[in-house]
Amino acid sequence: MNTVSGKEAESEPGPSGRVQPRQLIVTVYGLYARDTEGWMSVASLIQLLADLGVEGPTVRSSVSRLKRAGLLEAESVSGAAGYRISPETERILRDGDPRIFATRRATVDEGWVLVVFSVPESERAKRHTLRTQLTRLGFGSVSAGVWIAPGHVHDEAEDMLARHGLRSYADLFRADYLSVGGGTDGSGDLAAKVRSWWDTVRLQQLYIEFLAVHRPVAERIASGSPVTDREAFTTYIRVLTDWRRLVYLDPGVARELLPAEWSGTEASELFDELHARLAGPAHRHVERIRTG
């Protein structure tokens, strides 16, 4: 199963009611366009987005914005107008699939990866790119030029720096946290450090919102209420759009370092349940639209 990440995963997540049409389009393309070599007709896209309550003119406008951003490329196939996923988007999709569908949480003993960087003021655009990409990989800020993430993110960070031509501005280190205990201000408490490097309070609230929005439909399905393929599609797209944005904010640090009331685990279990129940019928609905 496929989805999308990267550029469209950077905006603030929240309940599906606040999702922008272009984010829904990205989810639809990420899930279903790779079944047809990355291409989808405009007609099919408009019909599918209509199921999600998005009108045709809004779809066309949003697709144009995605084209200008380099995510989609216009292409006609057998006389049908449509758009194909760009090569860069294809790479982002491929890299993002494991993060979406196989969320990994670090262990306390696996250590950390540090990125130490310095970008001249004259190249502030590169500084912005670097910070944006580090955030997308789940890094937290220790100080202005020192960012941190769980050790398993190392290979992704190396690849990102090389791909964006940023390797000369940054050094990567593998690290262990050695300062433990001591002090009444929590300076020796790694869990306290995690709370200062990432906004875990805000992330906890977002997980609570995800559960509040999407748990009722899981309960309804579990109770045996029938769900049509169309309903499965509209629900699955909204669930996945919300989820993919959340996991790009979650650094994936060890559970022991997170707040006691952490809701991320429950949210992950809910997503897995809805994915298992909805992905198949949602795909059937898309196929009927594309071949109808």
Rank of each mutant, 00 (worst) to 15 (best):
V19F: 04
A43W: 01
V194C: 05
A276Y: 05
V142H: 12
P216G: 10
S141T: 12
R174V: 01
S179Q: 12
H128K: 08
H164W: 09
I85N: 02
L240Y: 09
R68C: 02
G79N: 05
N2G: 11
T291Y: 09
F233R: 04
L66S: 09
L66N: 07
D176R: 14
G181S: 01
V239F: 13
H283K: 15
L274T: 03
Y29H: 07
R290D: 11
G165V: 06
G38N: 03
A191V: 06
Y248P: 11
T200E: 07
P251G: 07
L31N: 10
L178Y: 02
G56C: 07
I221Q: 00
E110N: 01
D97S: 10
T135N: 10
L72Y: 12
R131W: 05
L49D: 06
A9H: 09
R60M: 12
E10D: 11
L71H: 07
H283G: 15
E75T: 02
I100F: 15
F210L: 08
P216Q: 09
I208Y: 00
F173Y: 13
V201T: 10
E8L: 12
G182H: 04
A212I: 15
R131M: 07
R34F: 02
G138T: 14
H128W: 13
R238Q: 15
W112T: 12
V108E: 15
D272L: 14
A9T: 12
V119E: 00
A80H: 13
E266T: 13
A222W: 08
D189W: 03
R127H: 10
R215I: 04
G280T: 09
E123M: 05
A144F: 08
P226Q: 14
D171Y: 13
E256H: 13
W243D: 00
E269A: 14
H275T: 09
L71D: 05
A74I: 00
T89M: 15
L203E: 02
R60N: 03
E273S: 14
E37K: 06
L24Q: 11
D155L: 13
T36W: 11
A102M: 12
